[in-house]
Amino acid sequence: MDRQEDIARLGERIANDDQLAYRELFIQFYNKLSRFVMGFTKSKELTDEIVSDVFINIWRRRKNMEEIKNLKLYLYISAKNITFNYLKKLHRENLADLDMVEIEPQDPFSDPGAAMITREMNLKLRSAINDLPPRCKLIFTLLKEDGLSYKQTAQLLNISESTVENQLSIALKKISGAIRYSFRNN
């Protein structure tokens, strides 16, 4: 998966002009970064353009790769900055708001049967996640699916670590509430 050492190793290879490593990095993060950016832009075309910008900057500055301490966090912060710049240019600054963000997390279980989960339960989980407030859903997704730490999430979103911590607790509590009732009803 995306262990920090592995990503750092990719970074070193990219610094040595290794296009295969560059391709690997792109493929590893394209979907994740697209989901994050899409949450703000709500436009597939614009998202594609922004993510492409994020990666071309990596290639162009590959000789200064050692300046990047954490390549993964760098990708997300760079994606956010480029997104906000675009929104500004398009006079859509209102979209650069964590309470307006529309993140689409993946399905709770891609194969409920294999995980011994009923389809009903999967649907309940899905709608519980979808009903989370925008900011809460974004934080939940960044932690769970993007694998960022509390600290990294806080840095990325310019919020405090304790906010991140609280928001995730709220998310888990709400989701568990949804499945508790279904458990009783069943």
């Binding site: 792109f26 493929i27 979907n31 697209s34 594609d48 993510v51």
Partner: peptide
């Protein structure tokens, strides 16, 4: 749950990139 991988989509995006 493992993150869902859309490798084909990412590879197509890479070629576009």
């Amino acid at each position: 749950q493992e993150a869902k991988k859309n490798k084909v989509g990412s590879e197509a995006a890479y070629v576009r990139h």
